[in-house]
Amino acid sequence: MTYQGRFRVWRGDDAGGALEDFTVEVNEGEVVLDIIHRLQATQAPDLAVRWNCKAGKCGSCSAEINGRPRLLCMTRMSIFEESETITVTPMRTFPIIRDLVTDVSFNYTKAREVPSFAPPADLAPGEYRMQQVDVERSQEFRKCIECFLCQNTCHVVRDHEENKEAFAGPRFLMRVAELEMHPLDTADRVDQAQDEHGLGYCNITKCCSEVCPEHIHITDNALIPMKERVADRKYDPIVWLGNKLFKRS
């Protein structure tokens, strides 16, 4: 069924901007990205939007729809009432380039700060062997499409720009957890997580898990297990004593 939908789309750049009203045709089965494309084709040819796969796998079209961080291509129009005005804005946490496009390079900086996979020195590529049960926790985190919706919604940096330097954000703390839990990784990631990537800033309010389009249990399976490992290392004298007595590393 076709109807004329009401939209408010943020237009502007780093010098300023505002929400602009549009009325656009909506057809059955469409997603918000289809509407944005129709808007470009019919009314606003210079509207900037980043997109690629239209299948929820490239992580390009992250934005905020009615204030909720979502992928434009995975948000069906059928979840809205026909009478509803739908607001589409860029991700708030990152600097704006233009319209719905933000500069997400903060995330690439944070990615580079996580030391890469460190296999045992005596193991050559091609000799890696591991059991499925040992690697499946890390595999959940590999589903990440790097849409950065979790980074965008995390209040630690969303509401406090000044924390960006100290806090890697849920995506990259999850990367640290992925490597820490990897059966062949030899690097010590626990102290790094707390001291260099700001794990202590996370107050586990689970917004990262709520917005993840891949439904990764970021908080329960990555962040809390990392917090527990930090507690083992830094805040548990019984574990410390056990390590000393039994010469465990």
Partner: peptide, 15 residues
């Protein structure tokens, strides 16, 4: 570069 200029505390329309 600055963030997008959006004054509202939230644009969420749900409860």
């Amino acid at each position: 570069m600055a963030r997008a200029e959006i004054a509202a505390r939230t644009l969420r329309t749900d409860r």
